[in-house]
């Protein structure tokens, strides 16, 4: 029982970060038909900003820990949205729907951004204190409040995104564009603006994951890239462009990793994931919830 609850808790906390990360990636793919290799750079930027703003806010401004975290989070979102707007305006908008071209561009951007982070922050891991350091017990499983908060926030954000996509005009535009760009244009939706919105929402989701993970794991200039391969596996399984697929896939991969990591070791878990992906491809080349083509 204890093991089960512990594994469930681990699944949720690993999975919720994966879900946020993969949601952004899949949303950007759906709207722009590009695979954004630089998605991890949004995560990294957010986490790095938190690690520099938080100490400044507590030490120089004398704010309390939660207040300085909040300030850091706001700064992180601002920085990531700026980066997102810049790379969209000066890059991605010229290669919309060009799969290979946009992929190559995103690789170039990833290298540039990682280089800049490295030049600014250096290679040493950086960490910030946990805002909620206490540990709680649920059915014998131990979980820090920080991680519990992460799970709850991730659920709220995911729910919010779902509502945004299903219930708002912007969401309708995003769905229309994802399904058929030409039809959407005929309806008078400005494709470029919808694409930019989708791109920025995707970036914000990565930033959210970065802000949430900063107090939990030490941050390096390549932190975000470590999520990239997992996120790729998730969206292969879930289907590119599928929001529900990213959620199911993220939780599933979180489970494989926490269960596999508990009984075996992390590398075995990653191998298991890959074998699962191969099995998936053999049966359903378009992912669980993806549409053919």
């Amino acid at each position: 029982m204890e093991v089960f609850v512990q594994l469930l808790a681990n699944t949720l906390q690993i999975g919720s970060v994966y879900v946020l990360f993969a949601l952004g990636l899949t949303l950007i793919f759906g709207v722009m038909k590009i695979v954004n290799f630089a998605h991890g750079a949004f995560f990294t930027a957010a986490a790095l900003v938190v690690t520099s703003v938080m100490p400044f806010a507590t030490a120089t401004l004398g704010l309390s820990l939660p207040a300085s975290y909040l300030l850091a989070a706001i700064a992180a979102f601002a920085v990531v949205l700026c980066i997102g707007a810049v790379v969209f305006s000066f890059g991605f908008q010229y290669v919309l729907k060009d799969l290979n071209g946009s992929f190559i561009l995103s690789i170039g951007l990833l290298l540039v951004l990682n280089g800049i982070y490295l030049a600014i922050y250096g290679g040493a891991p950086r960490s910030v204190p946990q805002v909620l350091p206490d540990t709680i017990n649920i059915f014998g499983a131990r979980l820090t409040e920080q991680r519990l908060a992460l799970v709850i926030i991730a659920i709220v954000v995911t729910g919010g995104l779902y509502l945004l996509i299903e219930r708002t005009r912007l969401g309708l535009a995003l769905r229309a564009v994802a399904q058929d760009q030409e039809a959407a244009m005929l309806q008078g939706m400005p494709y470029r603006r919808v694409a930019l919105s989708g791109f920025l929402i995707g970036a914000a989701l990565a930033a959210c994951a970065g802000v949430l993970m900063a107090p939990i794991n030490a941050v390096t200039t390549v932190s975000g890239d470590e999520f990239l391969i997992k996120a790729f596996i998730i969206i292969i399984i879930g289907g590119l462009g599928s929001v529900a697929g990213a959620i199911v896939g993220g939780l599933f991969i979180g489970m494989v990793e926490s269960v596999g990591g508990y009984f075996f070791d992390p590398s075995t878990a990653t191998l298991a994931m890959f074998i699962l992906v191969i099995a998936f491809l053999l049966v359903r080349p378009q992912g669980i919830l993806g549409n053919a083509d």
């Binding site: 890059g91 190559i104 561009l105 690789i107 170039g108 951007l109 990833l110 290298l111 540039v112 951004l113 990682n114 280089g115 800049i116 490295l118 030049a119 290679g123």
Partner: peptide, 13 residues
């Protein structure tokens, strides 16, 4: 390493 990354990245972009 930092400038190597920026260099290759900028070349690609």
């Amino acid at each position: 390493s930092a400038w190597e990354n920026i260099f290759y990245g900028a070349v690609i972009v």
